[in-house]
Design a protein around this nucleic acid. Structure first.
Length: 885
RNA sequence: GCGGGUGUGGUGAAAUUGGUAUACACGCUGGUCUUAGGAACCAGUGGCUUACGCCGUGGAAGUUCGAGUCUUCUCACCCGCACCA
């Protein structure tokens, strides 16, 4: 960025604003975004223009942007997200909708703890200071939020109602406790989040992380797996990519669960398979290292014990799993094939997951690639039972498993049946024999919400030596975090605090202990959009009347990175709340817009690493490091990130050019769902456009300020065209808004402004009243159409145009279809699909007229001299294609 | 490996859904003007060709009077998921 020129500008603007410079030489006021943006921001706030109140007279429209984590500064991703959300909010208001557009803070989370450790202060202090700073930053963007509904999830009030919801779901039997594995740092004595584990070591201590079992709280999201899956079908307003990702995440599969008898054991071994049709091809079985049978064998077999430990140690570094060799350990156990009675060896295998299905599988090497590789390694026979059409598979010669369709062979009574039919028949056979049944399995697991962290919402449970686990009664909420703590990064202060966890069991009155875990921060984001509807409700988590008035969210806008977790948890939580009567609708977010990332070139010096743009000198298209003169490599466009020094601070942009320029740039550079490449000259382009608009409106006001906007088609042909352009633009921008292609909407207004400027420059008819009327209509239209994109400049221009009200009182321009009627049409003439000529014909000319005119055109006549016309295709008003040979 | 997406000028991107490819903007070239500004304005700008023209939407084929758009294959890049039985 041209820092110097921005500074000069800020300096000059300051001089203007304090009156040390005057603009006597300028007839017109210059466009001064700093002055007029703060002026309008104050106006909106003072007049509570964006206050949302339920209304029976207007249709409601709920716009939601993903609330930010208060990290301290806004970044370009926020600017883009909120520019899009605000554009939609303002557009819907102009469409006479009653718009709810709230904002808040996702305020619990680890960065606050880290900052507190570093600065030896308290997370709350850091968080609330950041919120104050970021609120100021957001306000400079001129976003049309109802700030009265602002909330922070760490507010005691929000935390209290969240605990209440947790308890309500607990009483509905949707919450339970079980043991689960966590990453444990044995040096820091703390649990680590996955992102704190780097190469299997704790990020702070560097100690090898071990997996430890702790009792943790879970939500029964799997109870809703099927509804969450089916619900996606009712969401046509969601991008397919997100729906596909959620579908895969839920991972529904149909199969059969049945039991193998194990020789010498009373209990069988349950397995799950989606390929019952291959049952006769089973030549071995595998179980996970954590499977009870594996543990049983390991109890008196040190080799098995060692193998199991090996399996578990490789589990930590997930990347290494990728090409992990298939390994197994023969347990010596023998399973009995349920149909053939054959004896089948049972292995412990490193690729079988305890967490999916039953943790044990039947292995069919001929028709499963993993089993195939395993069988090759351990010399187990490969028995083909599915024969594809026109091919003879031979187990001994196969180089990979065959997983396609075919007919059954070597399968006794099922021989000759196609495998899809066989799946059902085998499943039925299992049910008849009463050893198995058709089962549906999901990849989705229950949602573990326990976090062994201080800066989160406490789980309102106590554990009593006499009564066991006891929920905290509603009237004792909230369970608040102790304030007198010092975060060290080693132990959880909730555990080590001298008194906090001591409490009294309300059941027996005896001494008890509080749960020291806090809730996953995805909890807060699972219902903030509901609390926005009734932020002042002080007797319950939600006010159903208000919630049901505003819900569902009509348009949700946010980053694609939340496609699965946040959006799935929120959908689940909402459905669970529906089932306890807190909300009515089934799905919380009707339409979803996922915006792309903001990216920028990265610059890398071989000696000095990632460089800032001003550490790089350019000559002849080559870049060099200003410190060592070495050549700098320009990396791929990457997401803006502090570690790569390619971050542009939105504050600089807004301070230099104003929020309107920043918003126009963001919205113009690319469609919202696409990644956006940061580009300075694009910002200049947006700035220049707003200046062109500014001058045009001023010129029109100066010259035609007395004119009222045209309301009917003018007689003059060129004016008629200009008015048609105005109404074409209304049509285009409206359509672009509806299909959320905001970049082309701006392009359309740019064209209109260019046309207006051209008319102003024309020498003839400058004083004509008709010219004035058409131009006045053009100016007013351009201003309103652009106001959702650039709200400040358009408010100011609306006033300059002599209007006393503000744009909040306006409606979206109405399309006059008569204005679009054209006198002339352009018809393209092709010969064999190749463009040969263009004709301008009267609009009312018939199909036949167009064909005749095409054949009479001199260029066409010349081209048809040596060929015969075979066929003529006429698309009226569009083209004539002459097929000739 | 599986699933999804994207490939169009020097650049960001358009294309009314099968009908004039490159709107709008950036950049660049030339010019005008002025109180040198982050100017503004005018003209030009896909490639090849002196021209008539020819070629051109990652590549190859196909359907069609006509394909950036539909079909098949293929290449490249990006994003998810990843031993899910």
């Amino acid at each position: 960025m041209k820092i110097f020129s921005i500074i000069t500008k800020i300096f000059r603007d300051t001089l203007y604003s304090v009156g040390l410079m005057n603009e006597a030489d300028n007839q017109q006021t210059k466009y001064n975004p700093q002055l007029l943006e703060s002026k309008w921001q104050e106006f909106w706030e003072k007049n509570q223009v964006f206050r949302a109140k339920p209304s029976a007279d207007q249709e409601k429209y709920y716009v939601l942007v993903m609330f930010p984590y208060p990290s301290g500064r806004i970044h370009m991703g926020h600017v883009r997200n909120y520019a899009i959300g605000d554009l939609i909010a303002r557009y819907q208001r102009l469409q006479n909708k009653n718009v709810l557009n709230p904002i808040g803070w996702d305020a619990f989370g680890m960065p606050a703890e880290n900052a507190a450790i570093q600065q030896k202060s308290h997370p709350a202090k850091w968080t609330y200071e950041n919120i104050d700073a970021m609120r100021d930053e957001l306000k400079t963007m001129g976003l049309s939020y109802d700030w009265k509904r602002e909330l922070a999830t760490c507010d005691p009030d929000y935390a209290k109602w969240e605990q209440a919801l947790f308890l309500k779901l607990y009483h509905k039997d949707l919450v339970y406790r079980k043991k689960a594995l966590v990453n444990w740092d044995p040096v820091d004595n703390t649990v680590l989040a996955n992102e704190q584990v780097i190469d299997g070591k704790g990020w702070r201590s560097g100690a090898a992380v071990v997996r430890k079992e702790l009792s943790q709280w879970f939500f029964k999201i799997t109870d809703y797996a099927d509804e969450l899956l089916r619900g996606l079908e009712a969401l046509p307003g969601w991008p397919d990519t997100v729906k596909t990702m959620q579908t895969n995440w839920i991972g529904k599969s149909h199969g059969v669960e049945f039991s193998f008898k194990i020789v010498g054991q009373d209990t069988g071994m349950a397995v799950y398979t989606t390929r019952p049709d291959t049952i006769m091809g089973v030549t071995f079985c595998s179980v996970a290292a954590e499977h009870p049978l594996a543990k049983q064998i390991a109890a008196d077999n040190p080799d098995a014990q060692r193998f199991i430990e090996d399996c578990q140690s490789t589990g930590t570094s997930e990347e290494a799993l990728e090409k992990l060799e298939k390994k197994g350990f023969d347990t010596g156990l023998i399973a009995i094939h349920p149909f053939s009675g054959e004896e089948i060896p049972v292995f412990i295998a490193n690729f079988v997951l305890m967490s999916y299905g039953t943790g044990a599988v039947m292995a069919v090497p001929a028709h499963d690639q993993r089993d195939f590789e395993f069988a090759k390694t351990y010399n187990i026979s490969i028995k083909v039972v599915i024969q594809p059409d026109g091919e003879q598979l031979d187990g001994g010669l196969m180089t990979e498993a065959y997983t396609g369709p075919g007919k059954l062979i070597n399968s006794g009574e099922f021989d000759g049946i196609d495998n899809e039919t066989a799946k059902k028949m085998v499943a039925e056979a299992f049910e008849e024999k009463k050893i198995g049944k058709a089962t549906i399995n999901y990849r989705l697991r229950d949602w573990g919400i326990s976090r062994q962290r201080y800066w989160g919402n406490p789980i309102p449970m106590i554990s009593c030596p006499a009564c066991g686990v006891v929920p905290v009664p509603f009237n004792q909420l909230p369970v608040s975090l102790p304030e007198d703590v010092q975060l060290t990064g080693t132990e959880n202060p909730l555990v080590t605090h001298p008194t906090w966890k001591q409490c009294v069991c309300h059941k027996c009155g005896g001494e008890a202990e509080r749960e020291t875990d806090t809730m996953d921060t995805f909890m807060e984001s699972s219902w903030y959009f509901l609390r926005y509807c009734c932020p002042d409700e002080n007797s319950a988590p939600l006010n159903q009347e208000e919630v049901n008035h505003w819900m569902p969210v009509d348009q949700y806008v946010g980053g694609i990175e939340h496609a699965v977790l946040h959006l799935l948890y929120a959908r689940f939580f909402h459905k669970a709340l529906r089932d306890i009567g807190e909300v009515k609708c089934d799905e919380p977010f009707l339409n979803l817009l996922t915006q792309g990332m903001v990216r920028k070139d990265t610059l890398n010096c071989p000696q000095h690493g990632w460089l800032y743009p001003d550490e790089v000198a350019e000559s002849d298209g080559k870049f060099s490091c200003v410190k060592c003169n070495a050549e700098v490599s320009v990396g791929r466009n990457e997401k803006m990130s502090k570690s790569k020094n390619n971050v542009i601070d939105p504050n600089d942009l807004i301070a230099g050019y104003g929020a309107d320029t920043a918003r126009i740039f963001m919205l113009f550079a690319a469609p919202p769902d696409q990644d956006l490449e940061w580009n300075e000259s694009g910002v200049d382009g947006a700035w220049r456009f707003l200046n062109r608009l500014w001058r045009m409106v001023q010129d029109i006001q100066e010259r035609h300020g007395d004119s009222s906007p045209a309301s009917k088609t003018p007689n003059d042909a060129s004016l008629k065209k200009l008015r048609a352009k105005t109404h074409e633009t209304i049509d285009r921008v409206t359509r672009d808004m509806e299909r959320q292609q905001f970049n082309t909407g701006i392009a359309a207004v740019m064209e209109l402004v260019n046309a207006g400027i051209k008319q102003l420059a024309a020498k003839e008819n400058r004083e004509d009243t008709e010219v004035g009327e058409v131009l006045m209509e053009l100016a007013q239209t351009a201003v309103i159409l652009l106001s959702p994109y650039a709200p400040h400049i358009t408010e100011e221009l609306w006033q300059i145009l002599g209007n006393s009200d503000h744009l909040g009182m306006q409606r979206w321009p109405r399309l006059d279809k008569d204005a679009l009627v054209k006198d002339e049409i352009t018809v393209v003439v092709q010969i064999n699909g190749k463009l040969r000529s263009r004709l301008t014909l009267p609009a009312e000319s018939s199909k036949e007229d167009q064909e005749k005119a095409a054949l009479a055109d001199p260029k066409i006549v010349a081209n048809l001299e040596s060929v015969t016309v075979r066929k003529i295709i006429v698309i009226p008003g569009r083209l004539v294609n002459i097929v000739a040979k």
